[in-house]
């Protein structure tokens, strides 16, 4: 991890710890990761994007088993990375944990859990956020 990422870890904690999305006050579209501008309403959405907590429930849109992993993920190798279509609309990129690769299938229901995401060696910062488990 680079030093500059420390503040971003703190800054994004609401979104990464509790799946807090943004909802357009104009058209009610939900965005996660949060956006300050609604993709449909554009300037009409300025100042109208409100925080909105997601249920954390959704289904697997697609997934992969990652073998060639960056340094911060070596202890998790191999890990399962997926695109999860959340019930409220948005799709997120996240890991699926606590299961075998053979249990993963496109369309399976999952729910979000709070987990350790990555760590910077033995003495560095540990970063937390959402992962998903099979429902």
């Amino acid at each position: 991890m680079k030093v500059g990422e420390l503040s971003s870890v703190w800054r994004e904690s609401n979104h990464r710890y509790r799946l807090v999305a943004h909802k357009c006050g104009n058209c009610s579209t939900v965005y996660f990761p949060p956006r300050d501008i609604c993709l449909k309403c554009h300037r009409e959405s300025i100042g109208k994007m409100k925080e909105f907590e997601l249920s954390g429930k959704g289904e697997i849109e697609s997934f992969t088993v990652v073998h060639d992993v960056p340094p911060a993920f070596v202890r998790q190798r191999p890990y399962f990375l997926a695109l999860i279509k959340l019930d409220e609309g948005p799709t997120v990129t996240a890991q699926i944990v606590d299961c075998e690769a053979s249990e993963l299938e496109i369309g399976k229901r999952v729910r979000a859990v709070f987990r350790r995401i990555r760590e910077d060696g033995k003495s560095g910062v540990i970063e937390y956020g959402y992962k998903f488990v099979l429902q």
Binding site: S8, E12, P33, S62, F63, T64, V66, D68, V69, P70, P71, A72, F73, Q76, Y79, L81, A82, L83, V92, T93, A94, Q95, I117, R118, E127, G129
Partner: peptide, 28 residues
């Protein structure tokens, strides 16, 4: 380490932070 650097071509905060690599996204 090259994986970390190449992963900066993705969305750092919402893809690579969670373990997304260029190959992983292509695989998905």
């Amino acid at each position: 380490e090259i994986l970390d650097v190449v992963s900066t071509t993705l969305d750092r905060e919402w893809e690579s932070f969670f373990g997304g690599t260029a190959a992983a996204m292509a695989a998905i």
